[in-house]
Design a protein around this nucleic acid. Structure first.
Lengths: 233, 233
DNA sequence: TCTCAAACGAGAGCACCGCTCTCGACTTCA
DNA sequence: TGAAGTCGAGAGCGGTGCTCTCGTTTGAGA
């Protein structure tokens, strides 16, 4: 009766097999990266014909999209959980936790980090379905910036440049908070990318110590209230 | 007689064909990206059998390496030229020029930027031959940081963390200068990557204005002399 | 000048890829 | 009970990197 219970045997099988395909694809992605993910290899792994996989995902790109959504979701879960364990008024510590947790995750799953934040997979462009899950990740940073704004009375300029952030998040962030947040976010992803993609090879000898120094200096809640647009240089 | 002159006809032909292969591969890379670069397509483009290309480059990866070296070189040329046109004592302006020139180049050749600074091409790891050309790019930043160090008497701590930078560049940079330089460099690449890889989509509405605000705030020559390791938090 | 090894281009072939189509078997629903 | 829909398997298309062979061409040494 209820649509959730009493599913037909076929529907149950379909759900299970869909899950198995995703699980196998996730394993492949973690091992060899998104660009090398192969539908045929997934089929081999599950002992079925490659054409059968297309009954469940119309194309490789749809499979990638599914993985993108899942991984964004897991990352967001992890970051939210870490953030929740920190004193919500200690913005500096919340930032450090965000940065450290993101890096820790990236080091443990470099291919997944590259999938989310590295160069796009050739021939694949993320559809709109991935906007929402990726937004959960940045929402944590936005929350920190909103609190930072509140403390500095939040009366800074609000130019058209960052209207999309305000509209997308529903938070009336000042330009200054947007800039500080984006600078920190870009700096964080840049630092992780430099390390993960080998650009610090033979230059930085202690990655952990280096990251601690960098992430501390990227704190977006520090230096609030600086001029944003009004004064220029 | 001299080995440079009086090359045999075969050697001349080999040089020309090698150049033609590289040129064709560059065109492909600019259009469809490094991961999709195909030896067979290069061969088709030049009207030869695909197997013949392997007489000149033993594998697709060697062709990619050649392109990597060339592109690093061209980028370094461009950045050096831009830097040379700026008052060498104006470190802030030199940084802005570096950042703007890099972004301008990246926007004009996004696939090449992704090749150099995005996630690694699957199955391809850059060999040591690419270390030197990539070093020319960062040398410009190091030069700015060295001058910055000189101004603040350069007496800061020099920990083991950044010994590789000092050894690799031959410049006795302080930790503080290393950190400021790497934070700025990571922030710059992070900002460009965010923009280029679509992570600012629908959030930032004016990319040019946003970048100007970010790059100005990343200036590594500002805030010199901050505590690096000695004081901690 | 002649010889012979090295270099070369072309083509076939191997194993892989994403994806499509067909066909027979099965399940579901009216 | 039929009809319609779903499924898995297999063949096939055009693409990929790469290897091997084969006949030709080239160039350097005897």
């Amino acid at each position: 009766m209820t649509p959730s219970a009493a599913l037909s045997a076929r529907a149950v099988a379909r759900r299970e097999l869909t899950g198995a395909i995703v699980a196998s694809a996730r394993r492949q992605l973690a091992e060899i990266g998104p660009a090398a993910l192969s539908v045929r290899a997934v089929a081999r792994d599950l002992g079925m014909a490659s054409s059968a996989v297309y009954r469940y995902f119309p194309s490789r790109d749809d499979l990638l999209t599914e993985l993108l959504v899942i991984i964004y979701g897991e990352l967001a879960d992890r970051l939210e959980q870490a953030d929740a364990a920190v004193d919500r008024s200690d913005l500096g510590e919340r930032w450090l936790t965000l940065g450290r947790t993101l890096r820790c995750w990236a080091l443990a799953a470099p291919h997944e980090y590259a999938f989310l934040y590295g160069s796009p997979v050739p021939g694949y462009s993320a559809p709109d379905a991935t906007v929402a899950p990726s937004g959960r990740v940045t929402a944590i940073l936005l929350d920190i910036m909103a609190e930072s704004d509140r403390r500095s009375s939040g009366t800074g300029a609000r130019s058209e440049i960052y209207a999309g952030i305000r509209e997308g998040s529903g938070i009336d962030l000042s330009d200054d908070a947007c800039i500080r947040g984006l600078r920190a976010w870009g700096g964080l992803l840049g630092a992780i990318s430099l390390e993960l993609f080998g650009h610090l090879h033979r230059a930085v000898l202690d990655y952990d110590a280096h990251f601690e120094l960098i992430v501390a200096r990227l704190d977006p809640s520090a230096g609030a209230g600086q001029d944003a647009l009004s004064t220029g240089r």
